[in-house]
């Protein structure tokens, strides 16, 4: 049997909102070490990985590894019925064809349960090696969201270049061009408002803004985002989910044909 309890439904609500447009369905792989997900968008140019560690849950039990095929739009519908402050418990019997979600209000005077039908989803797992990146940039997630949103009004793609001067986002379109540069900045007292640029070597890559915008749907999860860049490799846009784990978005760079 599988059972996982989170003290705040808001975390799961935000996670599913962050994923559901990019990947319509995927497998929650549950094991004694937690819940993980790997899913590609329909065009296979981006990949989402999610890791929620068992020790980040208030209670976590998984007797047997399981793959639970989930339609995220449907999961989102159910999670909309949970209050942000509700405690949420996910439950499934071994080999079950449904996932039970139980919501309890903070003072435990309202308890609801919803069963989500599970799907059979064939999915391939990709091996993602740990690697050193040419540039790793941590910045406020709201800043990232604003940059990619603002640039979308000017162009379809963005050239992201990291140098010792900072990280620069450039785009151009019919109406003109735009450049936004963020400098390494540890002045703000709050760490969440700082920008850290860890540069091993300068790197510049071009990406579709549409996807980078989509990743920004994860902004409500956490105040900081990390971008990892290496020449000719997918960018990694990572949002930590408190002590629970993280969601990572990988996007292939644009290449000249």
């Amino acid at each position: 049997m599988f059972e996982a309890r989170l003290p705040q439904a808001a975390v799961l609500k935000k996670l599913v909102e962050a994923l559901k447009e990019l990947v319509t369905e995927g497998n929650f792989d549950v094991s004694p070490s937690g819940i993980s997900l790997q899913a590609m968008d329909s065009s296979h140019v981006c990949l989402v990985t999610l890791q929620l560690n068992d020790d980040g849950f208030e209670h976590f039990r998984c007797d047997r590894n399981m793959s639970m095929g989930i339609h995220f739009g449907n999961l989102s519908k159910i999670l909309k019925c949970a209050g942000n402050e509700d405690t949420i418990t996910l439950k499934a019997e071994d080999n079950a064809d449904q996932l039970t979600l139980m919501f309890e209000s903070a003072n435990q005077d309202r308890i609801s349960d919803f069963d989500l039908k599970l799907m059979s989803i064939e999915s391939e797992h990709l091996g993602i090696p740990d690697q050193d990146y040419s540039a790793e940039v941590k910045m406020p997630s709201a800043e990232y969201q604003r940059i990619v949103r603002d640039l979308t009004s000017m162009g379809d793609t963005v050239l992201v270049s990291a140098t010792k001067e900072g990280i620069k986002f450039s785009t151009s379109g019919d109406i003109g061009t735009a450049n936004i540069t963020l400098r390494h900045n540890t002045t703000p007292e709050k760490e969440d408002e700082q920008t850290h640029i860890d540069l091993k070597e300068p790197v510049a890559l071009t990406f579709a803004l549409r996807y980078l915008n989509n990743f920004a749907k994860a902004t409500p999860l956490t105040p900081q985002v990390k971008l990892s860049l290496t020449k000719d490799l997918p960018v990694v846009v990572e949002y930590k989910v408190g002590e629970l784990g993280q969601v990572r978005f990988f996007l292939a760079p644009k290449i000249d044909d």
Binding site: M40, L126, A208, F250
Partner: peptide, 14 residues
């Protein structure tokens, strides 16, 4: 025109 490779071009199937 610029294209994009599939994720499977970067990461190997397990």
């Amino acid at each position: 025109a610029a294209g994009q490779k599939s994720m499977t071009a970067f990461f190997q199937k397990k």
